[in-house]
Nucleic acid binder design. Structure first.
Length: 265
DNA sequence: ATGCCGTATGATATACGA
């Protein structure tokens, strides 16, 4: 099973990118974040043509929005209204074999890493707190859960181009890393990307649009994640961050992350 | 990295991203 997570930064602005990606990599399931479109405006016919007959979408106008497309049937699961907001940042689905996929778009958190001065930062931390409590409540040793998405935190030193320079930059501050550590501990989540690229090897999935030459300067951050519960560790087969997608004309600022599983194990 | 950019919107400026 080939699973992809991709912050697409507007699905309608990126259909040619999706088509090229699907033809090149043939994923079975794609989890999108930042679709930026209401459900009734979603280009569903395009995805059906690409071979994805099964989907769940949760969108709104302009901001946020998540979607899951699958070649095999998926069933949507109930999930909370995080922080009391219907912000379209989470979709939970179950595949036919019982594996559950959680697709998240965690709030970016604004510019100032201070909960007093910046309510977006407070919202980001509260969101992570609520997610942690929710997963802690449903913890069971045999759960086969996958959590993917744009989590908007680069927790490790080697997840950013300069640990020192980003310590006070939202996405890599110690308080955010603490909240992410708590989230990981809440269900014994394993960082499946780091399973394949251990520290201290740098690993990034996002590069700012503002860099003149993102590939050469390589001032990236690893904001996109694939986590699995311990029962799924033996099923992990391969991982790739598709830098080619980031290098195409008018790309998303996030690269797709591809994870291959052997779920028969 | 407070920026050299990009997306969306009853838009010709503004909110948001990170």
């Amino acid at each position: 099973m080939r699973l992809v997570t991709w912050n697409i930064n507007s699905v309608r602005a990126r259909l040619d990118h999706v088509e090229h990606f699907v033809q090149t990599h043939d994923p079975d399931v794609i989890c999108f974040q930042e679709t930026k479109v209401t459900d009734n405006e979603f280009p569903l016919k395009f995805f059906e043509k690409q071979g994805f007959s099964h989907y769940e979408i949760a969108g709104q106008k302009s901001y946020n929005g998540v979607a899951v497309f699958s070649k095999t049937p998926i069933e949507r699961l109930e999930a909370p209204l995080w922080c009391g907001k219907d912000d379209k940042r989470h979709l939970a689905v179950r595949m036919q074999d019982g594996t559950v996929i959680h697709n998240f778009y965690i709030p970016a958190g604004g510019d100032i890493p201070d909960t007093e001065q910046n309510e977006k930062f407070a919202y980001k931390l509260s969101f992570m707190k609520e997610v942690s409590a929710w997963f802690a409540d449903m913890k069971a040793a045999d759960n086969r859960f996958i959590l993917v998405g744009d989590l908007n935190v680069a927790p490790l030193e080697s997840d950013v181009w300069s640990h020192k320079k980003l310590l006070k930059v939202v996405s890599h501050t110690p308080i955010e890393v603490e909240h992410m550590d708590e989230m990981m501990a809440s269900h014994d989540w394993i960082d499946a990307m780091r399973h394949f690229v251990p520290e201290p090897e740098p690993m990034y999935s996002w590069w700012s649009y503002r860099a003149r030459d993102w590939r050469t300067s390589n001032k990236g951050r690893r904001l996109d994640h694939v986590w699995v519960t311990p029962a799924l560790i033996p099923t992990l087969k391969a991982m790739k961050i598709d830098l080619d997608a980031r290098g195409r004309e008018k790309p998303s600022d996030h690269a797709p992350v591809i994870m291959d599983f052997d779920l028969s194990k």
